[in-house]
Amino acid sequence: MGRSFGLNEFLYLLKAIPWTLLLSLGALIGGAIVGLFIAILRTAPSRVLRGLAIGYIELFQGTPVLMQLFVTYYGLAVIFDIQVDAWPAVLLAFTLYSGAFLGEIWRGSIQAIPRPQWEAAACLSLSLPKQLWYVILPQAARISIPPTVGFAVQLIKSTSIAAIIGFIELTRAGQLMTNATFKPMIVYPIVAVLYFIICWPLSLLAQHLERRIDATLGVKRHF
């Protein structure tokens, strides 16, 4: 019955980490593109466009990621008439999910820049793109870095859910190892520690950046 949990089993878990990271990175990049559109639509002058963006955000922030994953997975199957691989479905689902969050983070960062900064830039005779480029975006980018890093942590943790539809990343590898060794008391804590080792430094970085940026920009955050 069952293997023992040794170095090989541990290495198997380690080898699953790149998939967790790859999925997170892919979703972050895809989400950045989607998020940019959402942020722009969200601030568009047209009420219809803004409504669309808000609907998108509500949908993805108001439903479980797991459900988004299932709907994407089976939805792709419906569209293409064949059972798709887990990988594209998972990547697409997490991209759409990230887009909603990143879009909101970035919109918030741009809108957090006080209106007088726009006015001061306009009064120096700068055109709208130049106001954005020289004055607003550099400040907004700095404000947005900590929550973006914070979201990356959230995303890395969320990708564990891909295990449920069988995508082999760290959590799924843990499940497989548990099934093979019958040692959940060893395997799952190790999996947790591995996630912790990935996420904790990022969390600390986000906190550190936030404190530093708040100090230099004089931003007051409430939470």
Partner: peptide, 16 residues
């Protein structure tokens, strides 16, 4: 705006 400058009560310098 090249010819008319303005100074505000709250300075509004660019902090970055």
């Amino acid at each position: 705006r090249r010819e008319i400058g303005i100074v505000f009560q709250s300075y509004n310098l660019f902090p970055h």
